[in-house]
Write a protein that binds this DNA or RNA. Structure first.
Lengths: 398, 398
DNA sequence: TTGTACGCGTTATCAG
DNA sequence: CTGATAACGCGTACAA
């Protein structure tokens, strides 16, 4: 009944399994495999689970035109008959056509998406930066994909890989405290994907960076303490492999030295300040025989923890202890007494990084400054004001 | 000079634009277009901007095998010679091969990405939900793309379109206060893309929802005020088209009625509470001839604004005015006196929505509850405690 | 065990 | 103005 497709033999045919619902045969004479499709046994289409999404081809078929015509009509390209265009547009609406961005991305090798990797989400700092960046990117028609490295170098690496695989058009990144090696960032350069660092930056890699004037801000904050009569000022700093921590420490030292204050080694503690650590370090400092009369902390959460410890110990703020933080978290304005702190222009940081990445995406040869240093503001509140009493004061830091 | 490719005519040739740097001609005799490439004018390859990224084909070529073999090797499929596999793997490393997720996505019609649309970023609520969702999704190997609708129905629609175009595998969404029409969400159902609503949900659409017990929480908060001897309790509520606002209002009413308190219409103000609005409404309430002796606000920012106004007016809290908020923002613990408020399990909300969407993505026929109602906690602080003085108290709300 | 050929949905190029 | 056709990079059914 069945004869070989090749040698037309009939006798030497044997069955050889099924292929896609069709019987498969082998001709033993010419050793040739073939299938014979007497009837399409494929199940009714109901089985087909994957929903069909209207494509450009569906429109083309139902209109009897080519897909290129549809594509042109959809994009309002020139050289197209207005009637044809309208017909396509109508049909697209009728068929509920939704362009497939994936296919577009594949062809264009572009995703219209900017990636952002942040180390943590617990302080309001990064969410606020996100707000700023989001605003600019959305306005420019870009999407923002956010990943969180959770202060882990390994997670950061896997994040960058995922970003790479997803072919983001540009990356905004703030490094983890663990990150000392930057090969994973070099890859972006190699691939021509622009990169902007912000806040947690490093010097080892040559890309634009957006930061604040950590040195000057810290300098002024400590000088402000000194002006208020504090003498023995301690510093609760962040991990020293972060440039921000280094800069803030440098500002502290410079102010102390300028005013001839002695810096005792045990009055400087650097490290990752979880709430628990802040409490441990704070207790240590305040239990010291010759305890500091002021503490400059690298962030507000730590500063507030200090204030709470002081209250528990009955140390009065600001008379017996001055406290200054960094970042101006919302709670800092409301705690009593208000926490003197340094306000960072978070939204502006976000807007600037976004603005830069867009410029780089648009034209990879654009010349951008190495670094943008945004200005902070010293917000003077009750926690550090021994001399004058009054309302919150603001000092713009150049 | 130029003759027609077809009819070999010379005289009837006219120029007809350029194609890819080449002159294009039209033969008027035979009405035939053609180009004549006397010299390739294309610029040296240096102009070619697009960098080549190693593909599976590059590996295949340099190894002299087929791309399917490479694909199989890369995915550890069965039926492949271990040596071949190793060779491919080595070559991939050597050539710094990075899989192109876009192409993969296109073929698979799947992106391994969950989308999330939130109405705003200003309160810590949504960032915290994001932390929770992010945690679960990352662990499951999914990416999270976040968009912000900025409380605008139009932006929400364009966000959902972008999500659709990007072929996310599932969507987590919290609606804007303007959203009254839900067609843009129906589309997802039609496309078989699972959806989970959280916080700002609606009843008109039949998808799983994750919320907190707003009614019970509000009821208890108001009852707590009543127990502390407050009589004339006002409510500063959110926009009434939000279910959360309705529920919180309902809780307020129920508690008032249960305890036989009169609800005066002008003591209830509903609306979008920007800081400015909170101030206006707060001033109005506190300037009333027969002003309220307590205010239950729909969020902490509004409650804190009330406290500030009261301070300015010299109204003492909690003696002359009790205040209760909602959400337990960080600042609420630190303001003096501490703000009594209702803590929402933000991380858990995020984790739950993420968990659900993953189940739905995994199996679209999985049966999930209509709604998950998470428990809140009443955090009693100084702003509402007339009777007893002491530390913060917590009440788990069932 | 491996190779061939096609499909995924678009855009761009080029020919008519 | 319109249609064919080749990419884009990968997965996989089918053939050998």
């Amino acid at each position: 009944m069945i004869k070989c497709v090749k040698c037309e033999q009939v006798d030497s045919i044997m069955k050889a399994g099924y292929v896609r619902g069709k019987q498969r045969y082998l001709c033993k004479t010419c050793n040739y495999y073939f299938t014979h499709s007497e009837k399409d046994l494929s199940l009714p289409s109901a089985v087909k689970r994957k929903r069909h999404q209207t494509t450009i081809i569906d429109i083309a078929k139902s209109l009897g035109v080519s897909n290129s015509t549809v594509s042109r009509a959809l994009h309002g390209h020139a050289d197209i008959n207005p009637e044809t265009r309208q017909a396509v547009l109508d049909k697209a609406l009728q068929l509920d056509y939704q362009p497939n961005q994936l296919a577009y991305n594949l062809v264009k090798s572009k995703t219209n998406t900017i990636g952002m990797i942040v180390p943590e989400f617990h302080n309001p700092f990064f969410p606020n930066v996100i707000i700023g960046a989001h605003e600019v990117l959305t306005k420019a028609g870009y999407n923002l994909t956010i990943m969180q490295s959770n202060e882990s170098y390994q997670v950061e690496i896997s994040n960058t890989k995922a970003m790479l695989a997803n072919r983001i058009d540009g990356l905004l990144i703030s490094l983890t405290q663990e990150t000392n090696n930057f090969e994973h960032l070099g890859v972006f350069e190699k691939r021509g994907i622009p990169l902007v660092l912000f806040n947690r930056v490093c010097e080892q890699i040559n890309v634009p960076k957006v930061v604040v004037n950590d040195f000057e801000a810290s300098f002024l904050a400590v000088e402000h303490l000194i002006m208020n009569g504090y003498e023995r000022i301690a510093h609760l700093g962040g991990p020293l492999n972060l440039l921000v921590s280094q800069e803030r420490l440098r500002g502290y030292r410079a102010a102390m030295e300028k005013h001839g204050k002695i810096i005792e080694d045990h009055m400087i503690i650097q490290g990752m300040l979880t709430q628990q650590k802040a409490r441990i370090y704070g207790q240590y400092l305040l239990d010291l025989a010759n305890r500091p009369d002021a503490i400059f902390a690298v962030n507000d959460s730590a500063a507030i923890e200090i204030m709470l410890i002081a209250k528990e110990k009955g140390i009065s703020i600001p008379d017996e202890l001055g406290v200054v933080g960094f970042s101006d978290n919302p709670e800092s304005a409301y705690i009593g007494p208000g926490l003197t702190t340094i306000r960072q222009p978070t939204h502006e940081i976000g807007r600037t990084t976004a603005d830069w990445i867009l410029q780089l995406v648009d034209d990879e040869d654009v010349i951008l400054p190495d670094k943008k240093i945004l200005k902070t503001e010293l917000i003077v509140r009750g926690s550090s004001r021994r001399c004058v009493r009054g309302n919150t004061k603001k000092v713009r830091i150049q």
